[in-house]
Design a binder for these strands. Structure first.
Length: 135
DNA sequence: GCCAACGTTGGC
DNA sequence: GCCAACGTTGGC
């Protein structure tokens, strides 16, 4: 069981939409490192849903429900996608500012590499953030 | 709206 | 295969 963090701009695809859709194909990733992370995902892995740009906070969790497969929206055929299912909504969103000053979270992969849209999360980080988020 | 970080592209 | 130019992301 592994943990991840997936970013989305609320303008493009918000948590509210995620909850409404219940599941969605995570298409549109055009970055090898992010794609590699998705390749490593297994069914049942969990990921944080992070709002970038607007909000800058983790708002909930999702579960991987379909393995990495080709992304039809990618004409080059180089990139793939996974499918995720909505998990729990945070009672209290966990903001980037809070993460950056937290002793156990400030070295998270997505803080260090802000441009990476899909990044790994350790089990310890997962626990801490879930607690902060109230789930 | 600016800018830093960083990935990608293309000329050589 | 290097590296400059350029584009994109995302925080502030």
């Amino acid at each position: 069981m592994a943990y991840w963090l997936m970013k989305s701009e609320p303008d493009a695809y918000s948590w509210q939409q995620m909850v409404k859709d219940k599941k969605t194909g995570w298409s549109g990733v055009r970055n090898y490192q992010a794609a590699n992370n998705m390749k490593a995902m297994k069914i049942g892995d969990e990921a944080f849903f992070y709002h970038s740009n607007e909000g800058k906070e983790i708002v909930g969790t999702v579960k991987i429900s379909k393995l990495y497969h080709p992304d039809p929206s990618d004409e080059s055929g180089k990139f793939g996608m996974v499918e995720v299912t909505a998990g729990s909504a945070f009672k209290t969103p966990v903001g980037l500012a809070e993460i950056k000053v937290h002793e156990k979270l400030k070295d998270m992969a997505f803080v260090r590499q802000s441009r990476l849209s899909v990044s790994p999360v350790t089990a310890a980080e997962w626990k801490v953030i879930c607690k902060l988020g109230g789930v």
